Amino acid sequence: MSPVNPSMDNLPSNVMFDILSRVPVKTIIHCKCVCKRWQNIILDSYFADIHLSRSPAGLMIHHNPEKVRGGYEPGILKWVEIEDESDYHYLHHDLFMSLNLNLATIFQDSQILIVGSVNGLICLWQFGPRGHDNTYICNPITREYMILPRQQYYREGYAIIVYGFGVGLKTNEYKVIRTFQGNILPDPTSVSRPRLLEAEVYTLGTGQWRSLGHVPYWNDGFLGPFSNGHTHWCVLDPDSPEKICAFDFDNETFKLFPSPPVETIAESQIHFRSLGVLKGCLSQSDTFDSQFTIWVMKEYGIKSSWHREVVIKQSISPELDWVMWEPMYLLEGLKDGTILMIYKENTLLSYCNCSKTVEDRSIFEPQFTRLAYHPSFLKLLDFKSEKVHVF
């Protein structure tokens, strides 16, 4: 390891913790190689907590999971850092910060889907034609990953598997929730309410899945955003008094959650709903063929705090003609009011509220999955009973 400037080496540990937690993520990684003291500081769980509180906004992009030679490639995880200031923002990708899953033997000839992220940890679901059905937790920054035990399986028939990943506010336990939604031995294309609605949960560090039994709500099956100790999904039950359900990671219970006013446009032929988190607030987007509405919950759990934040009319730009026929998913809200969104699950768009314009911000082609991501140095080794591997 390289010698350290004596003036810095003599600084108190609390000062070093503070200084190192403020430098860019890539620099922190290099700092581990400077000296033993700096390495110990960066590997300390206290440092991980401090850094997480200051973790910069970013995106995690799952890139290029295409079918190859009759098989599949798991793809590459690419962290895009958002340099976000009040008067400008910039999206930056450093090749050094990519994690090539194609090189991992365990992922060969399978597909990978990002199903959740919290505090810098990412939950991955592996599936494929050879019976793959595995769940992984990884930290792309520390390059650690763990394989969760094989899940319990629904007994028979077809089912859609829906994931959620989060951490309890009271227990601080990280958990993976997955639900099975399906009709037992029917036509899998049926749009009627599934006869099978069951769930199981895994608490990191316990080594086993636990059944939660019947799930009372039929959700939309998309990626559920995590906020305030809950994962949230849109409810599909037409008679439900609320159109959002939430899973509480502390109590391990499902409940209906206050949703924004139901918006209808008589002449619209489509209506898609999706959930996200903007500047720490739960948000909902409503896509019609003539406009796109963004709702933001200013006070978590308070129905009256839902606020119509943005209404994007198709008429503001001729380019929106192709946008309003697929659901859009909210990613991140920036300091200058810009909102980052995903269209058709593979195109990154930004809406500038000041100029009332929408721009294509895609920096990789093709793309598969994106989600808001805040990097961290949380160590999977802190979950004592889990076997941790390194990419």
Rank of each mutant, 00 (worst) to 15 (best):
M1V: 12
S2M: 05
S7H: 09
M8H: 09
P12A: 08
M16V: 12
R22I: 07
R22F: 04
T27A: 15
K32M: 15
C33E: 03
V34I: 08
C35A: 13
K36T: 04
W38S: 03
Q39T: 12
N40A: 14
Y46T: 04
A48P: 07
D49P: 00
I50G: 00
H51G: 02
H51Q: 15
L52A: 14
S55R: 02
A57T: 07
G58W: 08
G58T: 01
M60R: 05
M60H: 03
I61E: 07
I61F: 03
V68P: 00
V68H: 06
G71N: 10
E73N: 10
E83D: 10
E85W: 01
E85A: 13
S86N: 12
H89R: 13
Y90H: 14
L91W: 05
H93K: 08
D94F: 11
D94I: 06
D94E: 13
D94A: 12
S98W: 04
L99T: 14
I106P: 00
F107R: 05
F107N: 06
S110G: 15
V115S: 14
V118Y: 12
I122E: 02
I122F: 01
G131W: 04
D133T: 14
Y136H: 09
Y136W: 06
I141V: 15
I141W: 08
R143I: 03
Y145R: 08
Y153K: 13
R155W: 00
A159T: 09
G164F: 11
G166C: 08
V167N: 05
G168W: 13
T171K: 15
N172P: 00
Y174S: 07
K175Y: 07
R178P: 05
G182I: 00
S190A: 10
V191I: 08
R193I: 11
R195H: 00
R195G: 12
L196I: 13
L196W: 00
L197K: 14
E198F: 01
A199I: 07
T203R: 08
T203K: 10
T206V: 01
S211C: 06
H214Y: 05
H214I: 01
D220E: 06
G221S: 05
G221Q: 09
F222C: 12
G224W: 07
F226N: 01
F226L: 09
V235M: 05
L236Y: 03
P238M: 09
P241E: 04
E242Y: 01
E242D: 12
I244Q: 04
N251S: 11
E252T: 02
T253I: 14
F254S: 02
F257W: 00
S259R: 05
P261M: 06
I265W: 02
I270K: 04
V277S: 01
Q284D: 00
D286T: 03
D289F: 07
D289H: 08
F292C: 10
T293I: 15
V296E: 11
G301N: 09
I302Q: 11
K303A: 14
R308A: 10
R308Y: 02
V310R: 10
Q314P: 00
Q314S: 14
Q314V: 06
D321S: 15
M324G: 07
L331G: 05
L334W: 10
K335R: 13
D336L: 07
T338Q: 11
T338Y: 07
I339V: 15
I339S: 00
L340P: 06
I342D: 00
L348V: 13
S350A: 12
T357V: 06
P366L: 08
T369E: 01
T369A: 02
R370F: 10
S376Y: 01
L381M: 07
L381E: 12
S385E: 10
